[in-house]
Design a protein around this nucleic acid. Structure first.
Lengths: 166, 166
DNA sequence: CGAATATCAGTGACACTGAAATTA
DNA sequence: CTAATTTCAGTGGCACTGATATTC
C-alpha cells in the first residue's frame, strides 16, 4: 500500500527510486548473518563465543558492572550472567564485589584476558574485513555514518561512545 | 598486515579518518539486533517467527524447492525443513512433489499463506521503519547501495535478485 | 515499603554438523 | 558408483520471561 508508487519525482536528481525500509532490513539481515558466521569461525580457535568476545571488548575499557555490560550490549542483564560465567571459567575475567554498592558485581579482565585482547582484535578485524573488505575508505565512512545514525536513533549506548571519537 | 596503514593520502579530500571494518561490524550487529527484536515482536501476533516470515517472502515469488529456499536464505538446506514444517502446520504453505525431479519437493503458498502476505508485509515495513525511519530517501538509497555491495561480494542470492531491479 | 542489582530456572528460535534414504 | 536432494538426530549460541534473594 505505501511502497507501491515509486514516486518518480526528482527531489534529488540521483534518486530515481525510493528504497523501502523492508529492503534495507533484508540486506542488513543478510550482511549480519554473514558477519556472524565468519566471526564464529574466527573466534572458535580462541575458545570464545561471539557474545563472550563482545563482553571482553567492553571490559577492555575497564571494569564494568553487570548492568552496564548489559546496556553496552543492548541485552537484558540476565543474558550477561552466563557470558561472564564462561569468561570467568576460562580465566579471562573475574568478578569482584563493588565497594560502593554491595548489590553490584564488578567484572574485570584478568591478565590472561588482557593478553587475549590482541588476538581477539585480530580475529575481529579479519572476519570483518572479509565482509567489508570490498568497500573503499569513503564507502566505509559513509556506511559508518549511516549505521551510526540508525543506531543512535535507537538509543544505542555503545554508539554514543563512538560518537565522541568522530 | 593488510589493514594497518590507514593510507592518509588524499584520494578523497573528505575522508580524514579511516573507519575500521571492526567498527562497522559492531554497528551492523547492533542494528541487526534491534531490527530482529522489533520484527519478532511484530511477527508474534501473526503466529510467525522471523525465519518463517522470510520463507513466506521467498515463496511469494512462486513455488520453490527446499534447496532453493535455503540458497535464498543463505542457510544450509537442513535448516529450512523445520521452518517449512511450521508453515505447513499453520496451513500457510504446502509441500508438493516436484514433477521434474522426484528427489525434490516443491513448497508453495496456500490461499491462507497468500492472504497473510499483506499483513506480513505491513509488519515487516513497520518494524523496519522503526529502525530506518530516521533516514532520508537519499540516505536509504546510499545505505542500500553499500549493503548491496557488501552482500554481493559475499555471493548472496537474494541480492542478485534485487540487483536486476536497480 | 518500593526500586535496583544480580542470579536461578525454564523456554524458544535458529543455525550448525553428521548420518541416512531416495533418486538422478 | 558418484552426486544431489531432503530429512532425521543431536548440539550449541543466545536472547527472552518470570521468580527470588540481597541491598539501596
Amino acid at each position: 500500500m505505501t511502497t507501491r508508487a515509486p514516486l518518480r519525482r526528482p527531489g534529488a536528481a540521483a534518486a530515481r527510486r525510493d528504497v523501502s525500509a523492508a529492503d534495507l532490513a533484508e540486506l542488513l539481515g543478510h550482511a549480519a548473518r554473514r558477519l556472524r558466521r565468519g566471526s564464529v569461525a574466527e573466534l572458535a580457535p580462541l575458545g570464545l563465543t561471539m557474545a563472550q568476545a563482545r563482553v571482553l571488548r567492553v571490559l577492555a575499557a575497564g571494569p564494568h558492572r553487570m548492568a552496564d555490560i548489559a546496556a553496552a550490549l543492548d541485552v537484558v542483564p540476565r543474558t550477561v550472567t552466563p557470558m561472564v560465567d564462561g569468561l570467568e571459567g576460562a580465566g579471562l575475567a573475574e568478578r569482584r564485589p563493588d565497594p560502593d554498592d554491595r548489590r553490584s558485581v564488578l567484572v574485570a579482565l584478568t591478565h590472561a584476558g588482557r593478553r587475549l585482547l590482541h588476538d581477539l582484535d585480530a580475529a575481529r578485524r579479519h572476519s570483518a574485513e572479509d565482509v567489508f573488505g570490498t568497500l573503499s575508505a569513503d564507502e566505509r565512512l559513509a556506511l559508518h555514518g549511516l549505521l551510526h545514525t540508525v543506531c543512535e536513533a535507537g538509543g544505542c549506548h555503545s554508539c554514543r561512545a563512538q560518537q565522541g571519537e568522530r
